[in-house]
Amino acid sequence: MVARKSPRAGSDSAQGSRHWLYGLLCGVVLIAATPSALLAGLLLMPTVMAAVADRQPGRPIARAVLLFGLAGSCTPLNMLWRAGHGMDDAIAIGSDLHSIALAWVFQAGGWLLTQVVPMIIGLFAEAQDTLTLSRMRHRQQTLADEWDQGS
């Protein structure tokens, strides 16, 4: 008798494979480009924390923080690559508080956006709903006044 695999089991298996693939990729990057990986790890520390803290499906907060973190890390990484991509350069750039602060501020901004933008949109939507509800109540009253018998 052959046991049928459930779809959920298939999905977990694919996710596990993807994790392995990411791990392998990270390992390759770490071995092939250790200075960049070191600097990026330092610069993207808040992203790692956000990825750990964000439990939503698809990790939308971590994704935004990552995108902003990458934006803030472009200049230091560029400097590293232009300086020759050495371990010393990586340590030197990583020791520069200005670069670190800029990258982390970007990531903080990204996190802030994920909190503020939904709030603003929610406020707009609520205002629109309130207006619609008011219109409906008014229409209902009008109908009741006009067709007060049998309707």
Binding site: P60, I61, R63, A64, L66, L67, F68, L70, A71, G72, C74, T75, L77, N78, F106, G110, L113, T114, V116, V117, P118, M119, I120, I121, G122, A125
Partner: peptide
Amino acid sequence: SRNTGQEIAAAIGVATLAVAAVLAAVS
């Protein structure tokens, strides 16, 4: 609202990344 906001935040992030990458490449 939350989903839309987060998507917008991601979109801004992509735009910022693109600008930063260009600036980094130019400088």
